[in-house]
Write a protein that binds this DNA or RNA. Structure first.
Lengths: 240, 240
DNA sequence: ACAAAAGTGTTTCTGGTACACCCATGG
DNA sequence: CCATGGGTGTACCAGAAACACTTTTGT
């Protein structure tokens, strides 16, 4: 790039990347997609998937492309939102790299494939990462922590929880999403009433799903509402 | 910067800027700081203050520096938080410029001075900008809109409203902040109870402030709490 | 005395919590 | 029939909303 833009010697161009915190729920656990880095720096260390933003794409398009390339996931089907920008000049040993972190949520996603500069990609249980200090590359531990808090908090006042479910979902499934993400049991009957009284959260279909044992559950689809009013707060909640 | 980083011809370095949406309350109105651009592009058009991030500063430090340089404001005294990154490749006619938007809130701030590439700086009433389509430079109208929604929503579930007040504040002042930002009257007595029942929102002092007429008000300081639980929701609220 | 602003009290109503209970299905 | 999960009903309580009322100041 030419430098007809800058007017001071203190200014220089930066590399801009996107990093993705992709969450899903598998086997009753909240999982995040990690890669094992196949290039320096931090060779061999776990990291969030991501890569350089290309010349003619928006940041969001870059995130969608990385989602596809590094994780083999079709991003048009899942929820994707920007988390924030991380630009400490010392966050990357190679020089100034500003990264835009994105948060992605999807229903039980396929086993990922390794990408270009990743040895392999895998789902890691969040509970495990939070406890011990699994040393992620760069400042990815901080990004992951912010992403987690964002997810937990967004469940309270938006209908984003449905992003963890397939197109057709039961209220139990939706409740399980809340329980897994918040790490807290919820009262099934109260949860049910809350959701159904929130107009536009879900809309019922005439179909049913049959559990292994027990009464069949009515299937719902996502509704039009995004903001929940009143919100569904994770308070002291139900006895754990 | 060398290009030992990139591995594809599709990748190129970007200029990174910070832009600031600085809000304050003056004469009973929510105001945002705008500059009149003194350089191309968008010469003469109103814009949010901002500028290039320098070599060895974090994004936040860049925002604080621009706050000082472009608005003559000591940023250590006010609330500053990141809003998000805007990186559409067409947002700046000169080329790829990714901007990190910051949101700043402060008590009745001084009349600003023009900065380096601003002809002048001034406080503009938000109500005026929202109505008509005052054509801001770049994508600053979108940034401003998101900043506004962020402020309004953060008042609900954080104690950020105190950032609009001085060190010592009365409950009426605090209520006025909510009323001005939300554009909605609140019941003084209910507001009072809410705030005082939220532990850590404010702590009382023994001092008083005397209005022009009427009973003197007790002065409070900011408390330690940041999250409000339960939140203070702008619902249908009090009759307007 | 009056106006104005601060502050208290009270009633009503909505919505959250906890929990008892009924329903529909597979085994 | 029983176990299991889906779904309904209800009593109780905290907090929001509306509003009447008291207190303390300046003029």
């Amino acid at each position: 790039m030419d430098d007809w833009l800058k007017d001071s010697a203190e200014v220089e161009a930066s590399w801009v990347t996107v990093d993705l915190a992709i969450f899903t729920i598998r086997s009753g656990q909240l999982m995040v997609l990690l890669i094992e880095r196949g290039v320096e720096p931090f060779l061999g260390r776990p990291a969030l998937p991501g890569g350089y933003v290309q010349k003619d794409e928006t940041l969001r398009e870059g995130a969608l492309r990385e989602l596809r390339e590094e994780a083999g996931i079709d991003g048009t089907k899942l929820h994707l939102e920007q988390l924030g920008a991380y630009g400490d000049p010392r966050r990357d040993p190679r020089g100034r790299v500003v990264t835009i972190a994105y948060l992605a949520l999807g229903p039980d996603l396929p086993a990922p494939v390794g990408g270009t500069d990743a040895r392999r990609a895998y789902w890691a249980p969040v509970s495990q990462l939070e406890g011990e200090g699994t040393a992620l590359a760069f400042d990815h531990a901080a990004i992951l922590a912010e992403a987690l808090e964002q997810v937990r908090s967004k469940l309270e006042y938006t209908a984003v929880a449905t992003a963890f479910c397939g197109e057709l979902l039961t209220l139990s499934e939706l409740r399980t999403v809340y329980e897994v993400v918040w790490g807290q049991q919820l009262d099934p009957s109260n949860f049910r009433r809350k959701v159904l009284n929130t107009t536009g959260f879900v809309k019922s279909t005439r179909e049913q799903r049959f559990p292994h044992t027990g009464r069949p559950a009515v299937l719902y689809r996502r509704g039009d509402a995004w903001l929940l009013n009143p919100p569904l707060l994770r308070g002291t909640g139900h006895t754990v």
